[in-house]
Simulated scan of single mutants.
Amino acid sequence: MSTQPHPRLEGPTQTPTGPSSAEPAPAADGSGALKVVAEGVLSSLRPDPRGDDGRRPVGWLHIVAPPSFSAPVRASSWCSCGYERTAIGRPAVLQLVQAHDDHRTACPRLTTTHEGRAAA
């Protein structure tokens, strides 16, 4: 009966001779520079398609009118100048809508005067 030697189960493992997957590959054009990014991946930041145009809400009117006629109607009016009002009930909400409209014509944040330019 012939006995073959068993492979060693313990001991140092052999190190691979090629580059490991953690090292960057050399550039394809042979320039010597390392290729750091995968092909097809954008390496620069693109502009935000929803860019900020600088506009901000200055005044807001929010009305809640449930479908049932017997349910109470509520509304709130808000402006960045500090104007803030609320109302409950149909007559009060109608008055608040009118007050919100009146405030839009008198608010210092919304009115722009070009009188000085026109006189010059």
Rank of each mutant, 00 (worst) to 15 (best):
A33F: 02
L34T: 03
K35N: 09
K35L: 07
K35G: 03
V36N: 07
V36L: 13
V36D: 05
V36W: 11
E39P: 05
G40F: 02
G40L: 03
V41P: 00
V41A: 13
V41W: 15
V41E: 09
L42G: 08
S43R: 10
S43Q: 09
R46D: 14
R46P: 02
D52Q: 06
D52H: 12
D53N: 09
G54T: 07
P57W: 12
V58Q: 13
G59H: 08
G59E: 10
W60Y: 12
W60S: 14
I63V: 15
I63F: 00
I63L: 11
V64L: 13
V64E: 09
V64S: 11
A65N: 10
A65Y: 03
P66W: 06
A71N: 03
V73Y: 00
R74N: 00
R74C: 00
A75P: 03
S76R: 15
S76F: 06
S76C: 06
S77P: 04
S77M: 11
S77T: 09
W78F: 15
C79W: 14
C79E: 06
S80V: 12
S80Q: 13
C81I: 06
G82S: 11
Y83C: 08
Y83N: 07
Y83K: 12
Y83D: 12
E84F: 12
R85T: 10
R85W: 01
R85I: 01
T86V: 08
T86I: 09
T86S: 10
A87W: 02
A87P: 02
I88P: 00
G89W: 02
G89T: 04
R90Y: 01
P91A: 06
A92Q: 12
V93K: 00
V93I: 01
Q95H: 07
L96R: 03
